[in-house]
């Protein structure tokens, strides 16, 4: 009734045009929001805990994201959020201090949070040696040395016999094991769940700050469509 009083052909045309153009603009976004909304509504029934492929996870990483770690036998060892990862698989808690990785006959010895973690060739955790098991304190580095493994506290160097275990002081200065930058594709694998991706598509946050404001614009467009649609409807009645 409000709009009938001032019926004007030009205004009517403007309202219809605005409604039509806005509708076309928001249609694609509406499809995304609606479909992701339906999926999220049934998230408990659908398994969304799996991880998205690396190329999709890549949208969350910028070239400035950098994680350093070690490589041994073509496996990447690194720490993210205090957890030790081998390639893309989380192994166990490691604190923030990854001192190095040494390959030996029966797998890998990893200096992790001041302790030595022994992984077999299949990357299963065999053992975890701490100072209580005789491990020297304040260890800083671990390296493969010929067929042996050496650890160093910066002052002394020890030859490791992990089976006994025994740590014998040797007169060798171990070569430093340098870290490498973990390739982005390794970090990206198994880093973003489907649930997170769909939720971020739904909210627009997948596109960062731009997506956040685009969602605001979309919401405003819906409001505009509702108003113009109401205006058109009232004029027809």
């Amino acid at each position: 009734m409000l709009f009938r009083r001032e019926r004007h052909p030009k205004n009517s045309q403007l309202v219809r045009k605005t409604h039509r153009i806005t509708g076309v603009i928001v249609a694609a976004m509406l499809l995304i929001v609606s479909s992701t909304g339906i999926i999220l509504n049934h998230a408990e029934d659908i398994d969304l805990d799996g991880y998205v492929p690396g190329f999709l996870a890549g949208i969350y990483f910028s070239p400035s994201d950098q994680v350093n770690g070690y490589v041994a036998n073509e496996h990447y060892f690194f720490v993210l959020s205090e957890e030790l990862y081998v390639d893309s698989t989380r192994v166990r808690y490691c604190g923030s201090d990854l001192g190095g990785v040494a390959r030996f006959e029966y797998g890998y010895q990893i200096l992790c949070d001041g302790s030595i973690l022994w992984l077999d060739m299949d990357l299963n955790v065999v053992d975890w040696l701490t100072e209580a098991a005789g491990l020297p304190g304040q260890l800083q580095s671990i390296v493969s040395f010929k067929d042996d493994v050496l650890v160093s506290d910066g002052d002394k160097t020890y030859l490791v016999d992990i089976e006994v275990p025994a740590f014998k002081v040797v007169d060798v200065s171990p070569p430093k094991s340098g870290t490498i930058q973990i390739p982005a594709e390794v970090l990206m694998e198994e880093s973003v769940s489907w649930h997170k991706l769909i939720l971020d598509f739904h909210s627009g946050r997948v596109f960062g700050t731009v997506g956040k404001y685009a969602s605001d614009l979309l919401a405003l467009a819906f409001i505009l469509m509702a108003i113009t649609g109401l205006m058109i409807w009232t004029r027809r009645i």
Binding site: R92, Y93, D120, V125, V126, A132
Partner: peptide, 27 residues
């Protein structure tokens, strides 16, 4: 248990065990 082998300490009939177990998120 997230390891294939576990160290423990023993003297007579007494033994001591040290293990990590996750509460909510951290061990």
């Amino acid at each position: 248990y997230p390891a294939l082998r576990l160290r423990y300490w023993m003297d007579g009939t007494k033994s001591a065990w040290i293990m990590n177990e996750i509460g909510k998120e951290k061990p």
